[in-house]
Amino acid sequence: MSVVVVIELQDGAIVPMSWEALVAGGTAADALGESLIAVALGSDLTAIEAQLSAKPVSEVVLLEHPLLERYTADGYVAALASAFAELKPKLALFPHTYQVRDFGPKLAARMGRAFVSDAVGLGVEDGRPVFVRQMFQGKFQADVTVEGEGTVFASIQSGSFRADVLVDGPASPLRRLDVALSADQIRTKPLERFRETAGAVDLSSAERIVSVGRGIKDPENLPLVEKLAAALGAEVAASRPICDNGWLPLERQVGSSGQTVAPKLYLALGISGAIQHVVGMKGSKTIVAVNKDASAPIFEIADYGIVGDLFEVAPALIEALERSS
């Protein structure tokens, strides 16, 4: 029995969130008294062998096949299902990336098992893993357990475990498992990855950001936000729904599908604080939340909170800033 962590690669390089999943896996392996195995997939993994085996794992397992050159859900699920039949992991962890969202639950379903997606915490109680995840748009947290016999599958949300505690050590053993795959098993054809805009707005270098969410209600109210941003010397950003509605361009979106920012000041106006937004901004030095709902999850990560109507608070802020400058 073991704890397996599946490492994600992009263009041949290890995706950093994989290390956070590996730390989560290490913690769980210690608590469960199991060994920790890192698993990677690709067509030729020679280039990352040393990097992986230097990590504090009992073993590195590599799944290599020409058909794993590029990610496909069918290829990854087939390769991992046969590897897991051999490794019989007690727990299998994945970074909560877009790729894992595409194939992780499918892999678990093939093995007749549940997949606990988007875990922000992981503990062990009575010899079984207990996951913490957000529910109801972050209004509640849940302790989740997996029932029945077999592998427990879960994905770990970005920022939930610290990758910097990983220290390289002596090389762990490497093993290559045979992968049986045929082209007819793969029913999707991935084309090139691309970026739409050159990212004209680089929010990641902004010192101050005023970010706006659903609470703004109507695009006609955006000038108020822009005026406040100007008074603070800040860039304007938004949560997903604002960009979905086309009220602000996609390049101003902060969150898992947009930019990740860490300004000195992040002022969230009418943003409830769903995890998809929070992962993109929780590294900000000072977070201010203005929301009419006192139970909005954004207040949990805020340094300063104002429960109130943003249409009253924002003009008052502009005035206070102008007066004090």
């Binding site: 947290q141 302790d143 357990t145 949990e300």
Partner: peptide
């Protein structure tokens, strides 16, 4: 899978 417990989120910061 089972939701063993649902609860208000724990604060990570003093607000």
């Amino acid at each position: 899978q089972k939701i063993a417990k649902l609860y208000a989120p724990q604060k990570s910061k003093q607000t």
